[in-house]
Design a protein around this nucleic acid. Sequence first.
DNA 1: CTGGGGAGGGGGCCC
DNA 2: GGGGCCCCCTCCCCA
Length: 549
Amino acid sequence: MANCMVFNAQIASIMEVLANAAVAEICKLVDDDYAVFRLEITQSQKENRALRRKLQLLELKVARERVCASRLSSVKIPDRYRGMARGEGHLTGGHRSFVKLAGHNTWRDDQPITVDEGSGTSTQHIIMIEAAGPGVKQERTEGEDPRHSTDIQTGAAAGVVPPVATEELSTASTLQSRTRCSIKEASRTPNAILKSETVTETQRLLQTGSDHRSDPERLELGPLGCPALGSEYLLDGNPSPNTVHSHRDSGDVLETGNDPSCSYTTEMDPGNMPLGLETQTDLSRGDWNRYSSSVYSEGCLDKKGEVIVVDKVKVEGDAPPTWNVDETHLGEGHSQGRDFLDYRESLETNTNITTHSPLHAIRDREPVSTSMGPSDSHDRVLFHQVFNSNDRARAQTHGGGTTSGNSKEKRFLCMFCSKGFSCPQKVEIHQRVHTGVKPFSCTQCHMCFAQACNLKRHQRVHTGVKPFSCTQCHMRFSHSSSLKRHQTVHTGEKSYSCPQCEKRFSHQHQLKMHLKVHMGERQFVCTQEVLREVPPQDTPAEKTFHSMT
DNA sequence: CTGGGGAGGGGGCCC
DNA sequence: GGGGCCCCCTCCCCA
């Protein structure tokens, strides 16, 4: 009996121990789960805070817009900042952007913010500016929160919504505080960021689809919430700048509606240009004429009562109407030049433009009278591009920079890729790379050309004329460069050298073929390395090549 | 190697 | 003299 009781006591103690162990185990699990759960709660709370900040910013932004709408005023932006801040044209309209200062940010880079503006939503991208970088200059203005003073000087009112989402955002005065931000190589990849900005802006244009003229931001507010780096290019409030939109009444300009897939992003992207344009215009119907007119010669036709008979404009693609020219039709340049002049004129007729460009002299001319109707996203974006290029040109002019460092100033920039050229004709010719317009067609074959001289050269194929003859042999060439290249046969010149070995070649193609040998050998040896575990140091291309040869 | 197109730059001419 | 326009040259590339 006593034993039984002892046994029971032992069992009880054991069970107690087991129970305690089980409880401890359970408690441990609960604690772990609780910790995880608490962590999740903490994260959620952080997210909620961030979202609240965004919401607050957006609300304040709307308030700021309303405030700014009532005090629209022309703000002169230092030209030298335009090109930069406009980000090669892609920051324009970037009032949708916020500048997020490094160190103050609570958002992720490039974090989109969806804004409900009543007429639609838009995605905004936060531009991260490395405020502490050596290339960043802090500039302060009166009443300015130093934290808001990034490197982009816009000198405009209606400042940036401090991206830091600080509490002082709650006051309108803060919102209107002048913010000077100037981007100087602030971003490591400005183009990418700026392009994304353009994308979102153009998308917004499309999505809202409303009359943006009444949008004060378009008038005054520039990128980064700063006033209007590119605001002048907008026609808002300016009755005269008929300019680039003379064809907008065509009705079929763009039926993008709210479809972001028809975004001008594609259009803006040189690489995708043809596709993007096809989404906007029916090339097969010759709408390219309209496009190209709107780009190059906006308004000039209406104004002057002229009709540039774009008899045939051949565009890469199907059913290309062709602007037939023969070698005597090289007067195309006249119309080209006039068109471009008018195109520039149309830009300059915008009285909101503050410019010191020499082109500005044209401004005094009779304003172009066109049938520009209510705002149109397509036209607006086109004008956006056009003016940006022009403005960037001015920025380059005043900034002293040239696109490729040539001695001659390249004030005329391609609206698609911002490449600079010394004269408008060259820009127009260059832009055919993007537009695919080839106005010069051969009368004897289907070939079309973007440059008259190329057509002229091509026609030697038909005529058999070979004006370039070798002085050392009987060879004749239709290409001057072909002759030059041929003469390396006689001179023995081998200007193409292999970077991986000592071999030299007289023709580039030979070098390319040779390099393929290198590549092939390298791959071969890599394979051998895998199979034989060849030490890596034994496999430089040169050694490999030499050993194999 | 040659043929030939794409594209940019230079220079002359004209206004 | 300066700027715009136009043609030619040249380089690059591909077939």
